[in-house]
Nucleic acid binder design. Structure first.
Length: 513
DNA sequence: TTCCGACAGTGGGGTCGCAAT
DNA sequence: ATTGCGACCCCACTATCGGAA
């Protein structure tokens, strides 16, 4: 099949609102492609092709050659071309990548160019990613959806699962299982506003500290250890402390789930930025660990000595973990049905400088790759009343609306802020369609200037903003930025002169927020 | 040669709308 | 009613390349 056909299918999927219909369109397309070409199509459609690190982003897509008049690119050929671009490294790489990219785009029609750009920046916007594509693979191959889902959980790659399903059917999918050394998709947590709400959903529950580090999945086989991130990238060489901790466990083989975090000499967590920088760096790990030591807190055990545990209830997995991992390497935990006791545990986690708690259903199996209701995270919520300084035009379904808000605190003006307002960050979250329409109108009424994406406004509207914490910022004038800011509501009862001041924010930061 | 800007990619993430159940 | 999924974009950071100093 030509890329043309795939691009057309993607466009049809985007235009179709119903999920079953999207799956039907995708399945039909995969059937037409057949087992030879469908895996490549799955890689392109699901965003997996991009994860090869093609090295092409929005900037490289800004000036492109004129499109071809006639479609001629094949699906397989396109995937191969992207892989070739990804393989280019070293001096002259940018020029060579550009040459290859332009060669590819010059052979693509206008619609194909748009499709390829979407693939490369991960913005296909067809309303179908991994999950729906998985369902489409199941339908095209005539196998149960559950079989595909399970294979996907054990094998991050939708491409590989599609190839197996379409050539070997259910039997081939059944061969996918937990393999020590190959990462599975980590189980994710839903969230609740507070401990009480979480316990209403799960009771009694296991509560564990929520550690603000990076997720690690640790595989041990004999003397060998491999460490993977949440996105299944391998970081073994960067985290020797984790490797040593796993190597010392009294097992032949194990797959563990946990969180790695930089702790200070007092045992209190360092800011997330410190952990992130440490684990992202590929410099000499021995020097790094001397400067910023990591600690690992394990909270789950998926496999031990030849036995898969992930279908067991959480309680049993924890018991197995407790029998395998010393207490110092386990996340602090309690089991209770009592709301007061749960609150006390939550407060204790915060008192130790941690992020909050994860409330877990003791009966829940390990639902890899799902944001199931089995785990619920709870974090304290802070709020500020801030002023809207400007807004950016939205994309996709927010096109035509002012979406992303620039948020400012009241300041003396000596902070480099404009007109006495000090910008602390942006947010586009928490806005309903109704609110988007309303704020677009109200903000345009207050417009004082604009550039390509940004409309600056008179600082008159006050929003109540929730956020998780404050972080050091090299970008914003106060040297501080909000973490995970989202809009709760517009304060029509407050004028800008009643907004929170940057001094208040500084005090919060000093308190360790 | 060294420095620095631009870019890509990765870590952490919350909330809404809607289809399906 | 609830759940699952995709879309909407945030901020900080490192690595890399390539051109300026």
């Amino acid at each position: 099949m030509l890329l043309h056909g795939l691009a057309a299918a993607s466009r049809a999927v985007a235009a179709e609102p119903a999920r079953n219909a999207k799956i039907g369109l995708l399945a039909e397309c995969l059937r037409e492609l057949g087992p030879e070409e469908a895996p490549a199509a799955v890689a392109l459609l699901s965003g997996e092709a991009r994860r090869l690190r093609v090295g092409v982003g929005p900037a490289a897509l800004r000036d492109l050659p004129d499109p071809a008049g006639q479609p001629e690119l094949g699906v397989r050929e396109t995937e191969d071309a992207l892989a070739r671009i990804a393989a280019v490294h070293g001096p002259g790489a940018q020029a060579e990548r550009r040459r290859l990219l332009h060669g590819l785009f010059a052979r693509a029609t206008e619609e194909e160019q748009g499709f390829l750009s979407g693939v490369l920046v991960g913005e296909l916007r067809q309303g179908a990613l991994d999950a729906l594509i998985g369902d489409a693979v199941a339908r095209a191959a005539g196998v149960p959806v559950a079989a595909v889902r399970r294979a996907l959980m054990f094998r991050g790659s939708a491409r590989a699962v599609a190839a197996a399903a379409l050539t070997g059917g259910a039997a081939a999918l059944a061969a996918f299982g937990l393999e020590v050394g190959r990462p599975v998709r980590p189980m994710l947590a839903a969230s609740a506003p507070d401990v009480t709400a979480a316990l209403e959903r799960v009771r009694p529950a296991a509560l564990e500290w929520k550690i603000d580090g990076i997720r690690v999945q640790v595989h041990r086989e004999g003397d060998g250890v491999a460490v993977f991130t949440r996105s299944l990238d391998e970081i073994t060489a960067r985290v020797p402390e984790v490797v040593e901790a796993a190597a010392a466990l009294p097992v032949r083989s194990a797959v563990l789930d946990g969180e790695a975090i930089a702790l200070g000499p007092d045992g209190r967590p360092r800011p997330f930025q410190v952990t992130a920088a440490r684990t992202a760096s590929r410099q000499d790990p021995e020097r790094l660990r001397a400067e910023v030591p990591l600690h690992v807190f394990f909270f789950d055990l998926l496999h031990r000595d030849g036995q898969d545990l992930l279908d067991l209830p959480g309680e049993q997995r924890w018991d197995a973990l407790a029998g395998t991992v010393p207490e110092a390497l386990r996340v602090p935990r309690t089991v209770t049905g009592d709301v007061d006791e749960a609150h006390a545990f939550f407060r204790d986690a915060l008192a130790h400088g941690h992020e909050g708690v994860v409330v877990k259903d003791p009966a829940a199996p390990y639902a890899a790759g799902r944001r199931g209701a089995g785990w619920i995270k709870v974090k304290p919520r802070h709020t500020l009343d801030l002023v809207v300084l400007a807004a950016e035009w939205g994309h996709g379904r927010r096109r035509g609306w002012l979406s992303n808000l620039h948020l400012g605190a009241r300041g003396g003006g000596e902070d480099g802020g404009e007109g006495g307002w000090v910008m602390l960050g942006k947010t586009f979250k928490g806005l309903t369609d109704e609110l988007l329409a309303w704020q677009t109108e109200e903000l345009l009424r207050r417009e004082v200037g604009r550039s390509a994406w940004v409309v600056r406004v008179r600082p008159e509207l006050v929003v109540e903003v929730a956020f998780d914490g404050l972080q050091r910022s090299p970008r914003y004038p106060a040297g501080l930025a909000l973490r995970f800011a989202r809009v709760l509501r517009y304060r029509d009862d407050k004028g800008p002169e009643e907004a929170d001041t940057v001094d208040t924010v500084r005090e919060l930061a000093a308190e360790g927020l």
